[in-house]
């Protein structure tokens, strides 16, 4: 049996949960799929009712007052117990920040393999599953096999499967509610409410065109080069994480897993190497242009048009060509 752990907040599932169900359904062999969703009373049940639409064997709502809000200690204890009861062959998670926060602890507690940031699966010659994951910032790809006894834990990179690829069942899957085995006193983390730092003045997700800069811009004083292109294209200016970390552009202009997810008609990446954390935020763009001096930069893997060259030569030429 394959166990998928979905993620909800306030009864609302994230898209990545459906993507992970699609990933589980994609594994050959017709292995039964059970979806678990954790939370306090209410949230988990509401989410479980939605999950029942998926073509899966069963949905389990795991409830406990100490599972709302999320804590690493609480989720680890609850899932350790659930995995002990269900005895799955593999446990799949979306590779979200929440998953990253507790699943390595769960794997260490169970002493079972954990493969992270997986983008796909394929059968090997002997029939066992091989998992595909990026390494070296996406410059290389690895086929990886888990070692040691089951269950194997796997986290799937956001966007590796389409959420609407998750097959729906002809009738709702049975939903079971179980009380988590969990001692609330053992939870050490005491979380406050999540909050947004500042009102997002720029909604990049609504932009039709985006010009985005990365480390290749070299210094804040060179941003005018990118701004000139943005002006010529009537585009918003955005950036990869290191640019915002350095304070060259405000955080609200950051595209990627920790910033905004965008899907404009045109995305122009200037001097962006294309680390996974950036790609997940922009690879849904309609047309992607990459300008980078490194021909091996992973950004070219998602680009429709690429120019290998010095952005300080190419971009002014581009502005000139646009204004002609």
């Amino acid at each position: 049996m394959i166990l998928v752990v979905a993620e909800q907040r306030g009864g609302t599932l994230n898209r990545a949960s459906w993507e992970t169900i699609a990933a589980a359904q994609h594994i050959p062999g017709g292995v039964p799929i059970v979806v678990a969703v954790l939370g306090g009373s209410g949230g988990a049940t509401t989410a479980a009712a939605q999950l029942a639409a998926a073509a899966v064997h069963e949905v389990v709502a795991v409830e406990h007052p100490s599972l709302e809000p999320y804590t690493a200690d609480g989720f680890t204890a609850a899932l350790q117990s659930l995995i002990g009861q269900l005895n799955p062959t593999s446990v799949l998670f979306p590779h979200t920040y929440q998953t990253r926060d507790f699943v390595p602890k769960l794997a260490a507690r169970l002493d079972r393999a954990l493969l992270t940031d997986v983008t796909g699966t394929k059968p090997s010659d002997d029939g066992a599953l091989v998992f595909v994951r990026p390494m070296f910032q996406g410059k290389l790809t690895a086929d990886v096999r888990p070692q040691g006894p089951a269950p194997h834990l796997v986290t799937f990179q956001i966007g590796s499967y389409r959420p609407d690829a998750a097959a729906r069942g002809s009738s709702p899957a049975p939903v079971k509610t179980v009380a988590a085995t969990l001692d609330g006193a053992s939870v050490r983390q005491r979380p406050d409410q999540p909050y947004q730092e500042a009102r997002q003045a720029v909604d990049l997700s609504q932009a039709e065109r985006i010009v985005s800069v990365g480390r290749g811009i070299k210094g804040q004083e060179h941003l005018s080069v990118a701004q000139a292109l943005a002006d010529a294209l009537k585009a918003e200016l955005a950036a990869s994480r290191p640019i915002c970390d350095a304070g060259w552009l405000p955080m609200e202009r950051q595209v990627g897993s920790s910033g905004q997810t965008v899907a404009p008609k045109l995305y122009v990446a200037l001097g962006i190497s294309g680390a996974i954390q950036h790609l997940v935020g922009m690879k849904g763009s309609n047309v992607i242009v990459a300008i980078n001096k490194d021909p091996d930069a992973p950004i070219f893997e998602v680009a429709d048009y690429g120019i290998v060259g010095d952005l300080f030569e190419v971009v002014p030429a581009l502005v000139k060509a646009l204004n002609e």
Partner: peptide
Amino acid sequence: AARQHIVRLYAPQ
């Protein structure tokens, strides 16, 4: 003991 093993490492498709 490592719990995962790289079967193959290659340039991304």
